[in-house]
Design a protein around this nucleic acid. Structure first.
Lengths: 129, 129
DNA sequence: CATACTGTACTAATCGAGTAATACAGTAAG
DNA sequence: CTTACTGTATTACTCGATTAGTACAGTATG
C-alpha cells in the first residue's frame, strides 16, 4: 500500500516564502516520523491545487527538497520521500543543533552567560498560552 | 564634557539592512553601558561619511531609533542618547527575554523538550572557534 | 496512436525593501 | 546678513526575491 504524505494541516504564515514553507513542512514531517522513506508526494499540479498556489511555486519547493536530499523524483512517477540514517541525522542537525547554535551566537552577542540563559529558559518555557 | 558615542568598531554584515545594523549597534552600546543618557551622536552627514553610506540610510536608522525611544533629536543640536529605567528595561527585554522566547517557539516547533534543549546548550556553548 | 498524466525550462510580471539624489526649512555663530 | 551647520521630506532608482504564465518533452495506459 502506498502511503501518501498529505498536507491538510499545512497553513502558511505570511512572512516566509511559500516554497520555503512547503519544504520545511515536509522536512518536519520526516523529522517527526510522519513521513517515511518511499512515501509518495502529490504531483506538482495536484499540490498546487491543494494549496492554492502556482504550480511553479510548488516546483521550486520540490527543487529545493531534492537538492537537500530528502525527496527523489522520476520524470513520470512523481516524487517520493527519501530518507536513510544520514538524511535523518542531517535533518536532526539542522532542526536542533543548528537552531541551538544560532541561538547561542545571538545570546553571546548580547553578553548572556550560559547560566543566565538556562535560567531564562526555565522561566519562560511554560509561559506561553 | 560631552561624551560622543563612536562607531569605529561597527562593522557591517551583508545580510541585514544597514540602517537596522546601525540602530542595533546603538542599542547594544546602551545595553552594555557603553552609551549613556545624554551622550551625543554624530550628525546624519558625519555618520554617513564615517560609515561610508548614504545620509538617508543613516537618517532611516535615526528615525527607527527615535521611534524605539532611546534616541532624542532636536532640529539644530542633533541627536543624543536617551535612557531611563523603563528604556533600559525594554531593551533588556528585547535583547534577552524576546530572544529566548523566539528560540523557545522554534524549539517547540520541532518538538524539543526543555531538558533536551538545556543539554544541547551545555554541549554546544563552548564549542565555537 | 491518442489521451492524460508526469516533470521541467524559460520568460515575464509583480512587488517590496533598501538605498540614493535632491531640495527645503530652520538656527547658531561670525 | 551670510555661512555653515543642523534635521527632514519627497521622489526616484535599483535590485533581488517571489510568484506566475506558458510551452515543451517524456511516458504510462487504454
Amino acid at each position: 500500500m502506498t502511503i501518501v504524505v498529505h498536507f491538510h494541516n499545512l497553513q502558511f504564515n505570511n512572512k516566509d516564502p511559500v516554497y520555503i514553507q512547503i519544504a520545511y513542512f515536509v522536512k518536519r514531517q520526516i523529522h517527526l516520523g510522519f513521513a517515511e522513506n518511499g512515501d509518495k508526494l502529490p504531483s506538482r499540479r495536484e499540490m498546487a491545487a491543494l494549496l492554492n498556489v502556482n504550480p511553479n511555486t510548488v516546483q521550486k519547493a520540490f527543487k529545493l527538497m531534492e537538492e537537500e536530499g530528502y525527496v527523489h523524483t522520476t520524470s513520470t512517477q512523481g516524487s517520493t520521500v527519501y530518507t536513510n540514517e544520514a538524511i535523518m541525522k542531517s535533518i536532526e542537525e539542522e532542526l536542533t543543533k543548528q537552531l541551538v547554535d544560532d541561538f547561542i551566537k545571538s545570546a553571546k552577542e548580547v553578553s548572556l552567560s550560559i547560566d543566565r540563559v538556562t535560567e531564562l529558559l526555565r522561566e519562560q518555557w511554560n509561559e506561553r498560552e
